[in-house]
Simulated scan of single mutants.
Amino acid sequence: MRRLSGTLAALILAVAGLAAATAPAAGAAPTAAENCSVTWGSMVKAEWDSDYRPLVGIRSGRHDCYDRLVFDIDGTAADRIGYYVHYVSQLRQDGSGDLIPVKGGAILEVVAFAPAYDPETMEPTLPETKVKVDGYRTFRDVVVAGSFEGQTQVGLGVRARLPFRVFQTGNHLVVDVAHTW
């Protein structure tokens, strides 16, 4: 009996030691995989309310777990920015229906309810600069397809159909696409 209880005690100590060696210490920084877990999904994201303020810039950024596209709006934090974002098999220009080529394994169509022109003067507000995404982990291409009836359409070429989120912060519309599922 003493031998069985000694063996059982040794086994319990060994298992406890193994668990302690593999469990993170309290307060330890989470691993990259834990930091990058997302619950965003890849279905349509939309917000219909908008103040239709002019779009004045589009820029991109890289983060540890996602790539980011930011739409800068000429307005205040109180202005609402509407949007409709979804995956498409090909990008077709609003109004004309023309096919717009976008590089990548999947295409996110981003429609910002913000014209790329001043509604009063009809002068363009969006500089004709190319959004650079070379070397990004998820983004492959950003193509401004045009601005039609108060909405600006952008094709965002991504590596694959990955989860994304869309939100407004201040006078910015933000689209984040995760690096992995």
Rank of each mutant, 00 (worst) to 15 (best):
S37M: 15
V174N: 13
V177P: 00
A46I: 14
V88W: 12
P101H: 07
V44L: 15
S89L: 05
L69Q: 05
G104S: 09
Q151A: 08
A23Q: 11
V143L: 05
K130P: 05
H63C: 02
P119G: 10
H63T: 08
R165G: 00
Q153Y: 04
Y136V: 01
A114W: 03
R137D: 05
A33Q: 14
I81C: 04
T31P: 03
L108F: 08
A46R: 13
A112V: 14
L11I: 13
A9F: 06
A114R: 11
T7Q: 15
I81E: 00
T180Q: 13
V158W: 03
A33W: 05
G41L: 08
A145Q: 06
L69R: 04
S96T: 09
V38E: 03
V174C: 05
C65P: 02
T76C: 02
Q93K: 13
Q168H: 05
V154R: 04
L156D: 04
S147K: 12
H86I: 00
L55E: 01
A77R: 08
D134V: 05
Q153S: 05
I81D: 00
E47L: 13
S50M: 02
F167D: 00
V44D: 05
P163R: 06
R92S: 04
M43A: 15
K130S: 14
P54Q: 11
V56M: 02
S147D: 01
G157D: 00
D67F: 02
R53T: 00
V142K: 08
G17K: 14
I58S: 02
F113H: 14
P124Y: 13
E109I: 02
M1K: 11
V131I: 00
G104A: 09
V142Q: 08
A46N: 12
G27E: 09
Y136Q: 07
D176M: 01
S60L: 05
T31D: 10
I12L: 15
M43E: 14
F113W: 14
G157V: 00
D79R: 10
Y66D: 01
M1N: 12
R68W: 05
E123C: 08
A114V: 01
E123F: 07
L69I: 14
P127N: 07
A26Q: 12
T152V: 01
A19P: 03
A114Q: 12
Q90H: 06
T129H: 15
R3Q: 13
D176F: 04
A114T: 15
I100A: 02
A16R: 07
S96W: 08
W40M: 02
G17R: 10
Q151Y: 07
L18E: 07
E34F: 13
V144I: 11
K132A: 10
E128M: 15
V15Q: 09
Y87Q: 06
Q168W: 02
R92M: 01
G75N: 03
L99I: 15
K130N: 03
G155P: 01
Q168M: 03
R68E: 08
I73K: 04
T180I: 02
Q93Y: 00
G27Q: 10
Y136M: 12
F164M: 03
I81N: 02
T152L: 01
H179V: 00
D67H: 01
A116N: 03
D51N: 14
T76F: 10
A16I: 11
R140K: 11
